[in-house]
Design a protein around this nucleic acid. Structure first.
Length: 257
DNA sequence: GCCCTTGTTACGCC
DNA sequence: AGGCGTAACAAGGG
């Protein structure tokens, strides 16, 4: 599932298209922007890329921006090569019938978003103002500010893209495990030390996971999620709960409220 | 064929 | 008003 780390991997792949001019566009009819994209994009040149949370943005030479959001199973293919071969919960295949967006370029290359479950969303000039600060820009002060007045479970709030942009289910569990904070803990009762630990865990572990290849490379990896071995830190019994409507793996011994 | 998976949004309630 | 909890959505895979 593309979380902020996968979005950054996709952005880096998309960076290769800078300088290319779009000659043809194919869009899944399910996208409510399909007609608009077909009308507007041909003839435009990609001049840059950036990313906020899970949103990858292609900057176009007319000043517009094309926002790519990959949903649960969307993958980016640039020049025929998938930026990520293995995506948890996604099919291992890259079937052309699952192409939801295809941009052909003037030099004969192309970019595709392939998404079996059709939750990817493409739109011009995406509204990024509702997103919180990016996971790579977190500071204790910023996180405290975003959580002010909130009292829901910390994990549910980390997954709220308006609080922090880029956390998905796996890296939220990983960061809380690393920080020693219970996913059930109310944001209203978190200590300054716990907030600092969460930010420290994000700053330390997320770049490492990015370099290792994505959200599935943490301690709480898919194998651990599936088999619930003893906690790798203290040997305690890992638990599988639902928090914020999502499956949550955590250790009640060292992750405290 | 049933049920699991996730990110986002819609909706009802407080 | 706005926070919060829950369900719905798509559809492949087990």
């Amino acid at each position: 599932m593309p979380e902020g780390l996968e979005a950054e991997i996709y952005r880096r792949a998309a960076e290769r298209t800078v300088g290319r001019t779009i000659t043809a566009v194919e869009v899944d009819d399910l996208q409510d922007t399909a007609d608009e994209l077909r009308a507007v994009l041909p003839g435009l040149t990609i001049v840059g890329t950036h990313r906020v949370g899970k949103q990858v943005v292609l900057d176009l030479d007319d000043g517009e921006r094309l926002g790519l959001h990959f949903g649960m199973t969307g993958r980016l293919i640039v020049d025929g090569a998938s930026a990520i071969d293995r995506l948890e919960y996604a099919s291992g295949r890259d079937d052309p019938k699952w192409d939801r967006l295809r941009l052909d370029f003037d030099d004969g290359t192309h970019l595709r978003v392939n998404d079996p479950r059709r939750w990817a969303v493409f739109r011009l000039d995406p509204d990024l103002d509702r997103l919180g600060p990016d996971i790579f820009d977190l500071t204790p002060e910023l996180l405290a500010e975003r959580l002010r007045g909130r009292r829901a479970a910390i994990k549910a709030l980390l997954l709220d893209q308006g609080v922090v942009a880029g956390f998905g289910n796996m890296i939220a569990d990983e960061v809380l495990w690393q920080a020693g904070v219970s996913p059930h803990a109310s944001a209203a009762t978190l200590s300054d030390e716990q907030l600092a630990a969460i930010v420290e865990a994000a700053q330390t572990n997320l770049p490492e996971m990015l370099e290792r290849g994505g959200s599935h490379t943490g301690v709480i990896d898919p194998e651990v999620r599936a088999t619930l071995p003893p906690c790798p830190r203290d040997g305690g019994p890992l638990r599988r709960d639902t928090v914020g409507g999502r499956t949550t793996i955590w250790c009640p011994v060292h992750q405290t409220a």
